[in-house]
Write a protein that binds this DNA or RNA. Sequence first.
DNA 1: CTTCAACCTGGAGCGCACTCCAGGTCAAGC
DNA 2: GCTTGACCTGGAGTGCGCTCCAGGTTGAAG
Lengths: 120, 120
Amino acid sequence: MYAPSEAARRSGFSLDTLRYYEKIGLLSDIGRTSAGRRVFTDEDLGWLVLFRCLRDTGMPIAQMCRYAQLAREGEHTAGERKALLEEHATRVEEQMRLLQHQYDHLREKIRFYEGPADSA
Amino acid sequence: MYAPSEAARRSGFSLDTLRYYEKIGLLSDIGRTSAGRRVFTDEDLGWLVLFRCLRDTGMPIAQMCRYAQLAREGEHTAGERKALLEEHATRVEEQMRLLQHQYDHLREKIRFYEGPADSA
DNA sequence: CTTCAACCTGGAGCGCACTCCAGGTCAAGC
DNA sequence: GCTTGACCTGGAGTGCGCTCCAGGTTGAAG
């Protein structure tokens, strides 16, 4: 059981972002104290860790919502969920290749500044 | 000498983006025909390739503007420009590490769907 | 000579993912 | 019992990087 600030700290999302994620239905069934304050469980934290992973790899929020929705629908959507993650992983691989490629370019550009004269 | 559409095709930026880059001063001194149409040189294309590289690696436009401004100021800013690129390269390395890390997480998550039962 | 696609301008609009704000509630420590 | 700070809500605002639009011009092809 974690207070909002603790959940924010552990997940790396801001308090506002946690509230936002609940508002748009990405997080659901977040517990509340009698006074209405949110209480995050370890399971909620697990979701947040997943969302962190998906966001850091560039998945749009709409797609995360879709994944979360599927998970709520039950075990029979496991195949679809897996497919969704695999498609995403493929896109991430593409992204990594591009990033590596452009990084190499960048390093080459920097080398121009080390050797002979250059401009631009 | 390239027409706008050709420059767009070769650089991977849209026509609107090329115009936008000129408007904000990222591109400057783009040639014009007597009728006012843009004419891109090989040097301009070289800049666009660099901008493509920097954008793809996540550099904010403001920083690219700063780099372009330095280049316009002359050879004596070479050190500063190099430093700017190196700092950026360092951030890109960080980004690559994070991406790889989260990609590994993602692959692990996918493996859960392959083996025993799982949810979430 | 007409047509049509490519181009021009200034400025408005958009999509995304938050982020901030005002005004209010509540719990714990002094 | 009062202060303080973490929390609540609904809704407005922000920053980034484009993207689109209206209304007009140009120039090569048929």
